[in-house]
Simulated scan of single mutants.
Amino acid sequence: MQQIAHAVERVRAAAPLVQCITNTVVQQVTANALLACGASPAMLDHEADAAQFARIANGILVNFGTATSHQLLAADAAIAEANALGTPWVLDPVSVGGVDYRTTRIRAAAAQRPTAVRGNASEIAALAGHGAGGRGVDATDEVDAVLPAAVELSRALASGTGVPGSVIAVSGPVDAIVRTRAEGGADVVRVGGGSDLMPLVIGTGCSLGAVAAAYLGAADRTDPDAALWAVAAAHAHFAAAGARAAESAQGPGSFAVAFVDALHALAPEEIAAVTVTAEVRSEERS
């Protein structure tokens, strides 16, 4: 789809600066993925300077995978600045529903209306109030089964503002990117591709959240559909890179190297060639 190719071109032309408040397990993986996609990573996650840096960032990722007290305070500060300035930010609700305090903090962040939420099916269902979460960081739900919950969450995060809801991205064998419309109904974009090796490499999901922030940071904010297609393009970029990497990989280790190479090497038209479908559906209740 042309929207995908245009989004890729915008990222590579703009080199958006992405502030990552993310878990310690994936910081290097995330930085490498951002660089390979054409963005610029910054892992500033201390409360003393998070707000100041958020003023110059083009996009922000908040991921509480291994949250420290410093990161929690840094996220609060960065989110406040992002909302004040209209800077897009992405929430990755890692293991929401798994333990109480983590869940409370993730829900508090979600209440600040992120531009996008990216998680697996179980995390999205739990954040919408329709599940207990997955098994650790692993999903136990199917993408299609939680689409009504994703639609409901998108609408809820709009908070009755009369604007389109937050983009809700659900990762799975076929990803689904959902956004409710101000006038009712919801857009659903499905992105196929990728590889079965992707869940065997640490950080593919977490780094996807950061790359989604990069795509949002480079998007045309005057276009009402830009956020939807920016997140879809980030997913398409990962799907295309996963498929390319799997062609030469011997296992998870070689796949990880080939995946970063593919993120860098793929042309916009190759990324746009992944299987992408779009539909408008009426809102459903879980």
Rank of each mutant, 00 (worst) to 15 (best):
G165Q: 05
I21P: 04
A241Y: 02
G119P: 05
A67H: 03
R102F: 14
H235P: 00
S154W: 07
V276K: 06
L216H: 05
A48Q: 13
Q27M: 15
Q27A: 14
G203C: 12
E47L: 03
A67Y: 03
D196Y: 01
A82L: 10
G59E: 01
G162S: 06
A111S: 12
A245T: 04
H235V: 08
A182F: 03
R12F: 07
P224S: 09
T104Y: 14
A156I: 02
P224L: 09
A272Q: 06
L157I: 12
T204N: 04
A218S: 01
D261M: 11
I79G: 06
G134S: 13
A126Y: 01
D175V: 08
A239R: 10
P252I: 14
E183W: 06
A84G: 02
D196P: 08
V62L: 14
I56S: 09
E279Q: 09
V280M: 09
A249M: 00
G131F: 03
R55F: 00
G65T: 06
A236Y: 05
H130S: 00
S282C: 11
G253I: 14
T30N: 11
L157D: 07
A31M: 10
Y215A: 10
E279G: 05
V96A: 14
V276W: 08
T161V: 03
L127A: 03
G203T: 10
T24E: 11
V99W: 11
R55M: 05
A48V: 14
E123Y: 05
Q112P: 08
P41K: 01
P164D: 13
I177R: 00
A125Y: 00
A169S: 15
D175L: 08
R105I: 11
S159T: 04
G59A: 03
N32E: 05
L228S: 08
S122E: 00
T275K: 01
A158N: 08
A226V: 10
D220W: 00
Q2D: 13
W229F: 11
F255N: 02
T140A: 11
S254R: 06
R118N: 02
E270A: 09
V170L: 11
G131L: 06
R55D: 01
A110I: 12
T22A: 07
A145L: 06
L61F: 04
R12Q: 13
V170A: 08
L266Q: 09
H264Y: 09
G172V: 08
E142R: 14
D261L: 10
L34D: 10
L73T: 03
A57Y: 03
A186H: 08
M198F: 13
V274N: 07
E284L: 14
G65N: 02
S69R: 14
E9L: 14
M43Q: 02
G129C: 03
Q71H: 13
G38W: 02
Q19F: 00
P173H: 13
A210Q: 10
I202C: 04
A139M: 09
I202Y: 00
V274F: 05
L73S: 10
V8A: 04
A246D: 07
A128T: 03
E142D: 15
T104D: 15
R181Y: 11
C37R: 05
A126I: 03
P173N: 12
S154F: 08
N58A: 13
A267W: 01
